[in-house]
Design a binder for these strands. Structure first.
Lengths: 338, 338
DNA sequence: GTGTTCAACTAAAGCGATATAGTCAATAAC
DNA sequence: GTTATTGACTATATCGCTTTAGTTGAACAC
């Protein structure tokens, strides 16, 4: 690869020591304003950029943060949500020329192994933990590895890790209230795997709030998030003697699959069945009828996570808990009066 | 972050010089087999991992390759294809503990700026160029920056860059032949933006092959790949006095959107209209009817790209051209006799 | 028995930045 | 007028690893 100018080259050209150049470029005292200006000018002229590795070696900042997604390659559906998060993070961090190291792995075991690798290779300055689990082995690991970390999706539990979170409980009650107002008395929930915190919270919210509002039925069926299991769960529900009049899906993919099953079984949507998705994406808009869903600015959420992580990296002792806006309900054609 | 063992620690423990340890760990001559074994053992025992930055600084290998996706954030649809590519690349490269630096940017300008940044920061050892354009400004840039690069999707043009490619021309003729065999005489093509090589080739293939087979009509309508424009193009086509009996879509998202439009307009699929998608994904399977599409092992393709890139990094003077298997046609419910 | 060759190391010089301890002149203080 | 106190620098060590140039002792040749 081509030779790039180094700090030494600039120093030579300006006629000062490399140290002075470093001071000037990093905006710290030790050089006169006049010299600083001259150095900055020459640096720009020579098109200088810091050598990441050199900076990392000296100052111990890798200039990258990590985001790992544990997914069975076959379940790899439309990862719209995390694509948006990633985009938001990258936009927020690229200004500081920090890269986001995103990696897909098979399972949590591989994810943990990767964190260990990254830590010992000093590849990242911080981590974002997503898909929070009820009993999450990763929390202990990142604390052991002593890497600044922010979790996404769950209030800072037990003062362990900083987090950016949304209130899944409130989100579910919003949906239930909306459906109840439409006179739905039998609401079902096609959930994700209950090992995930957000799934667990949604299930709990439905159970509690359903009981509180005196619904006739409010059941959650766990799945693995795949379209196949989403479809199967829907089939199960609609085959019951007293099928639900509304189904809430934990993901857009399962909701779309469920809609297909309903139509196939001759259950008109929204006339006989209302469908609500917990996620928004193109998918909810291209199916017919378009799906009522919870929507939020995922892009902004990614940026928020990035900001939060930066703070934690700057001050690792800090414990931040950012509550994000509760997703708002976007009503489309898939819901109607029971 | 916690203190990790260095080569010097290992050297001290084994009782040799750091240089010897480096030789042993990198499998190069200069140490006896006996000492090598001892060093490797101690290294494993101490759980040593190379410090990426140090290695990059000394040996000038960043241990990462880059993949940039230029997308309007709003057009960010189901990036299933590239998610799979990324997965394949990561699996192939993680064994050599090389990371894939994936980044989403707004447009080609930002993409080029990012390449410049990466080059001057020495962040990546190589690049994968995707979404080849007809007149591609990036090619000149990566050559100027002198970064080992592999392009995906187009035969190594003019001996400039190595590439892994699939034959889009043949893919289109496969589809046309299939549809012609079902007596379709009016085939339309909802294409992507014609600035992309693969779109241009598909359009050309349809035009030429359609003429050769004596079809009554074979037209391509360009779009921006969004579901909205895919839907609009479909509406245009179906509103014509003599609408096509088959539509080929350049993406699964547009195909799904097109299907929705057809059903909405009262055009039964596949009775009055056959639909074929150029991409496969969950999307083609959850809609009803499921879409006939071209399918390929994208995951393996990603691995192939990674292997190819490794070769180019090892020997930058080499010019490789790997032709991948032509996607095969998966027939589902969206196509039938005209 | 002297010289040559080779394997198996060690010593030390980078790589490009950062950070800390000095140096030196100019100014301020008493 | 001598001593502090700055400001503006320079010199140098350092980060962890790679790499090149020695160094040493043993094997071998003649």
């Amino acid at each position: 690869m081509a030779n790039r100018p180094t700090i030494a080259d600039i120093a030579k050209r300006v006629g000062v020591s490399p140290g002075a150049v470093s001071f000037a470029l990093n905006g710290r005292p030790g050089v006169s304003e006049q010299t600083r200006a001259r150095i900055l000018e020459v640096a720009r002229e020579m098109n200088w950029r810091p050598h990441r590795a050199a900076r990392a070696l000296g100052g111990s900042q890798a200039g990258a943060v990590g985001l790992v997604l544990a997914r069975d390659p076959r379940t790899l559906g439309s990862e719209h949500f995390y694509t948006q998060i990633l985009y938001g993070m990258q936009e927020a961090l690229s200004a500081r020329s920090i890269a986001v190291q995103m990696q897909l792995v098979r399972d949590t075991g591989a994810e943990i192994a990767l964190y260990r690798d990254w830590a010992s290779e000093h590849r990242v300055d911080g981590l974002v933990l997503v898909d929070q689990q009820v009993s999450d082995p990763r929390i202990e690991i990142v604390r052991e590895l002593d890497i600044p970390t922010v979790t996404l999706g769950l209030p800072a539990t037990a003062g362990l890790l900083s987090s950016v979170w949304a209130d899944d409980h409130e989100a579910m009650t919003t949906i239930v209230d909306y459906l109840a107002a439409l006179d739905h008395r039998r609401i079902a929930h096609v959930a994700g795997p209950p090992i995930y915190q957000h799934t667990a919270r949604r299930m709990q919210a439905l159970r509690e709030h359903g009981a509180a509002r005196g619904l006739d039925a409010s059941e959650s069926l766990p799945t693995d998030f795949s379209d196949a299991q989403g479809a199967a769960a829907t089939r199960t529900l609609l085959s019951r003697p007293r099928p639900p009049t509304a189904i809430v899906y934990d993901s857009d993919l399962m909701a779309a699959a469920g809609l297909g099953v309903a139509l196939e079984m001759g259950v008109p949507v929204p006339r006989s069945l209302s469908i609500v998705s917990f996620d928004d994406s193109v998918l909810t808009r291209i199916v017919h009828p378009a799906l009522t869903c919870l929507s939020r600015n995922t892009y902004a959420l990614g940026a928020q996570v990035a900001e939060c992580l930066l703070e934690v990296i700057t001050d690792p002792s800090s414990l931040i808990s950012v509550r994000t806006e509760t997703p708002r309900l976007v009503v489309r054609g898939s819901t109607a009066r029971a």
